[in-house]
Design a protein around this nucleic acid. Structure first.
Length: 552
RNA sequence: CGCGGCGUGGAGCAGUCCGGUUAGCUCGCCAGGCUCAUAACCUGGAGGUCGUAGGUUCAAAUCCUACCGCCGCAACCA
């Protein structure tokens, strides 16, 4: 038997010096859709996430709070995971870089790179603040007229010994790799940026050590130094699957299929990271996907604070809606649902590009697409079947469902005109492609407008509530077909809004178990083995409970 | 001249690469229909000189030039 296809993906690991916000959540969501989709499609998936804890900032933050750094990190990791769990992010492992295993494996890796001659000792010169006990960037120096932005004291030019990774020697090899693997950096625009960066500016050797730090990972060959952020953080992607510790597991998953990252750290993942791996004798990842950012968009100059009182949706203020602290994902999740949160960002913000989050838009999208279109379609089907047929469309066993598109005379014409070129199978294939390309917003738009809106129209034109009075059999057929749209939609929506999709699917006795459905099942119109019936739980009065209650 | 992106009816976008039917879509707004449904659904309508000024062409949102405006990144902000 052929081995199951594997799929290893990661998100960027986060600094735990502040809580996760909608931007970090956006990244995890996009990755989660991919992981869920791949699982559906039969891949053996491993999804890695984590926190990047070995930074000076983190130890300082802990000190500010008078906490032990490790205790602080552990608590932040708990808080991060709480948010990811609330959002139903289906990660398989969560790496804390302060963990012993990560440290051990990191040392093995760096030793190997050192042994292979890619690390050399030099000296680092820069602007140093004695108060902060750290080097500041040229930008900080320039913008603050030579003073420390924190202490307002003059920055000193300082020179200290430092280890460098010889990144500059990899320029040619990187360019060649990009050329031979055109999909390595996605989307295209990010690839162009990196290529032009290397061609115009070139790559410098990069400092990878800090001296006299108590927090962080010590160099195996020189304990006076600790590893400087990136050289430790990136390694999470391999220590988390057993590099230097569990060879078989590591070989099973590496190289990674996709690293999901923010567009700002593209260069580290596309230039530094492959070079590091080569330096240690490992393969580079197959793909890096750099997603866009989400910007908090508020009217005028409301700012974050005070928005609760000032911004109104209809007659209600944000505060009354419970949306005071907009950048806090838990607030939105608690007030509405993880599903609403997931849907909004995946639908409204293009994953490859930037998007906006505004409370008004959030409510618009939710009401119009989830409540009015999808949720209402479910409600009307459930009610019509329950009221008129006692919940069971009898003698529909063996009936073959129709695809809504094929029931529309106009579309039938169009299908004929295309000479069979375009049909439901190509439609589903296109959707799959969108998901594989991380064009989630396009996929959701298509599901909404090409499937669900049409299904509401179909019900409207055939008016089963009227038809049932004159021709109960004909009305039954209409409902049977309409329900198929819900089956198809729930399958297609499974990676995006898993809970709601399941709720829809299990509202009826569809033959295939929910856990086993694949995208191809949406195109496959299998006959119903039993009479189609409503299996959803109804209220005491027999009323249907809205799946997505309207906001406002 | 650091790099990149954007400017299309009230809002958000597609279309621009490979110029050519009445410039599409979603939301909002207005009118009507329907009443199974979550004041939901369906139909119709108003609303745009496609940032500005030139140029190429039989023909420009689309190609060329200049300019204006907005935004992001710039080696530890996803």
């Amino acid at each position: 038997m052929a081995a199951k296809k594997t799929w290893f993906q990661t998100t960027a690991i986060d600094y735990p010096n502040s809580r996760p916000h909608i931007g970090t959540a956006f990244e995890k969501l996009g990755a989660d859709v991919q992981a869920r989709y791949r699982r559906m499609e039969g891949y053996d998936v491993f999804f890695l996430m984590g926190n990047d804890e070995n930074t000076v900032k983190v130890s300082k933050r802990a000190a500010e709070l008078c906490l032990d750094t490790q205790a602080y990190c552990d608590d932040m990791a708990r808080q991060f995971r709480e948010v990811w769990d609330a959002l139903d992010i289906s990660y398989d492992t969560f790496v804390q870089t302060s963990s012993e295993r990560h440290k051990q494996c990191c040392r093995k890796f760096i030793q190997k790179v050192y042994d292979n001659g890619h690390i050399e000792k030099g000296s680092y010169e820069g602007w140093y603040c004695e108060g902060c006990e750290e080097f500041k960037s040229e930008k900080d120096h320039k913008e603050n007229a030579g003073n420390c932005p924190v202490h307002r004291t003059p920055l000193l030019r300082r020179n200290e010994p430092c280890y460098f990774f010889k990144l500059s020697t990899f320029s040619e090899r990187l360019l060649k790799y990009y050329e031979e693997n055109p999909d390595f950096i996605q989307p295209e625009i990010r690839k162009n940026e990196i290529v032009s960066l290397i061609k115009t500016e070139g790559l410098r050797d990069i400092p990878i050590s800090r001296r006299n730090q108590t927090w962080g990972i010590q160099f195996p060959f020189d304990p006076e130094f600790t590893i400087y952020v990136w050289f430790d953080a990136l390694l999470t992607y391999i220590t988390g699957i057993g590099y230097g510790d569990d060879e078989a597991t590591f070989r099973k998953w590496w190289p990674a299929d996709t690293h999901f990252i923010g567009k700002d750290i593209t260069r580290f993942h596309c230039a530094l990271w492959p070079a590091m791996l080569w330096a240690a004798g490992e393969e580079p990842p197959k793909k890096v996907f750099a997603h866009g950012f989400v910007y908090l968009k508020l009217p005028e100059k409301v700012g974050d604070k005070g928005a609760g009182e000032l911004v109104k949706i209809g007659k209600t203020t944000l505060k009354e809606l419970g949306l005071e602290y907009l950048a806090e994902p838990m607030e939105i999740i608690k007030k509405f649902s993880a599903e609403a949160f997931r849907y909004f960002f995946l639908r409204e913000c293009p994953y490859p590009g930037d998007g906006d989050f505004s409370p008004e838009r959030f409510v618009d999208v939710y009401n119009s697409e989830l409540a009015n279109n999808l949720g209402n379609l479910l409600s009307r089907c459930l009610t019509l079947i329950t009221k008129n047929y006692g919940g069971t469309l009898d003698s529909t066993a063996g009936w073959k469902p129709m695809w809504i598109d094929e029931l529309d005379p106009q579309i039938q014409e169009a299908l004929k005109a295309s000479g069979g070129q375009y049909n439901r199978i190509t439609w589903i294939n296109e959707l799959s492609k969108h998901i594989e390309n991380c064009s989630y917003s396009v996929a959701l738009f298509t599901i909404m407008n090409s499937l669900l809106t049409k299904s509401n129209q179909y019900i409207e034109t055939n008016a089963p509530w009227k038809l049932v009075k004159t021709d109960k059999e004909a009305a039954k057929k209409v409902l049977f077909n309409a329900v198929q749209s819900l089956r198809i939609a729930s399958i297609l929506l499974k990676p995006f809004i898993p809970r709601s999709a399941e709720a829809i699917y299990t509202s009826f006795n569809f033959p295939k178990p929910w856990a086993e459905v694949q995208y191809a099942d949406a195109a496959e119109l299998l006959a119903q083995p039993d009479d189609l019936r409503v299996t959803a739980a109804l209220d005491e009065g027999g009323k249907v409970k809205p799946l997505f209650p309207r906001i406002g």
